[in-house]
Design a protein around this nucleic acid. Sequence first.
RNA 1: GGCGACGUACCCAAGCGGCUUAAGGGAACGGUUUGCAAAACCGUCAUUCACGGGUUCGAAUCCCGUCGUCGCCUCCA
Length: 499
Amino acid sequence: MALVVTNTLTRRKEEFKPLREGFVGMYVCGPTVYGHSHIGHAKSYVSFDVIARYLRHIGYKVRYVQNITDVGHLTDDADSGEDKIAKRAKEERVEPMELVETYMRSYFEDMDALNALRPDISPRASGHIPEQIELVKTLIAKGHAYEVAGSVYFDVTSWRRYGTLSGQRLDEMEEAVRIDPNEQKRHPSDFALWKKAEPQHIMQWDSPWGRGFPGWHLECSVMSMKYIGPTLDIHGGGLENSFPHHEDEIAQSEAATGQPFARYWLHNNMVTVKGKKMGKSLRNFITLKDAFAGKFPQDEEGNPTPIRPFRPMVIRYFILTSHYRNPLDFSVEAMEAAEKGLKRLEATVGAIRKRLIEPASGEVSPGAKQMIEELKSGFTAQMDDDFNSAGAIAELFKFSAKVNESLEAGEVPQGDLKAIDAAFTELAGGVLGIITAHTGREEESSASIEKGLLDLMVETRNGLRKAKQFQLSDQIRNRLGEMGVQLEDGPEGTKWKRV
RNA sequence: GGCGACGUACCCAAGCGGCUUAAGGGAACGGUUUGCAAAACCGUCAUUCACGGGUUCGAAUCCCGUCGUCGCCUCCA
């Protein structure tokens, strides 16, 4: 079985073969940090997190680069376009870099909560100004860019392959209704590599063309090629960036190096809310912090209304139950369904881990061995098919059902428990990241006094149950339930867990 | 107007030419278990894949058309 990925460049599934044996250089467009991250960011970065994890799982050494845009991203393409960071910094009355720091931390905090592993390199645009100036100089020298009054534009007519990624054609784009005519540009589709800064502009640097700042598209070309090389194995990002952002990246990179920029373009689809795209400018977006706190937009204005909190892991699981290339519609109902599904998986893992006595010993029985092999081959087949995490989760559920069945049937040998736990840890934990080392071990990880008190409550209640004092024992269970501790009476005694 | 994607059960969602007379999750309904619950387990739940044609020995999967939804062409993950 070989890994197959859908390449936006060719619009088909292709066998994945990196440039260098055993090594994958992967670049994913990161966030512009001028506000808190939302569910759309989560879909994108959780998807690429799993892609990176899976590539490592099948043995590749991966260098995952994901930029932080902290300068140059304009609110629109017209001359009047303001830098998003500068604009927000003015509004919040802070230094631009202060704003960047705040939201960059917020971003990493949210991604950590979603159990997305950090990229290997998180380069910032503002830290790569000299490299960006160099690339602009190269493009001018090669006749692909021109300077007008302190700004430099890429000449799209000099790059005849312009539009291959998105299937756009220059002559057709000229007719596009909403492109703002900009007198400086020779062609409406020419894009800014370097912009002249007015004296009052907060972020500006010296360049051969005077004081200014880099255009948005430039940073991705510069930073990806700096840390990976002129040809990336994978370039990822959100679908909405395929045009013009990725198209421009290809043009300026290939025009500069003369080499193919990226072998595989992977695009994740959008998150929708009630069928409509969720976007920063549409004001219908749900920030991750709101979602974790249980606030969802319920009214027409999109104001966050408290419903109930969902664990970050539920959001991660929810994202992974659909394919990264398909749109995902976000709703409270869908989150509740996802929460229940994830709990079932966690319950099985918990049941295994509770029976497991470390250090576990003993051989794995042939039956368990076969179950695990079936899981692994099914899981791998799904993930090999363009990272089909939804299919991979289905395999986990099939396996989980078999595990539950054997737990129900009677004593499972320690060797089997250990192997089953290892399989879950490797696939559901290591690859999909939907369980952690703590899953099913909530009791052990509780503070000692809390644990002692709960054990005492359970003991007391079981005494009452023995004496058939059900009214009192139910009261204890109900009250603990209200506090978020769930009691389960089973044949092996009473268990408690946090809900 | 140009480019592109999607339409699978009550809901979500895989499948992309034969292994599927369609995975998995949620909901629902029976049953086992339980003091009652919860959890878990067993069973039921699409001869059918928006609709109409065509290609093929064979199509949810390929082609054409129709309808519907969405995205990009302007900032956005």
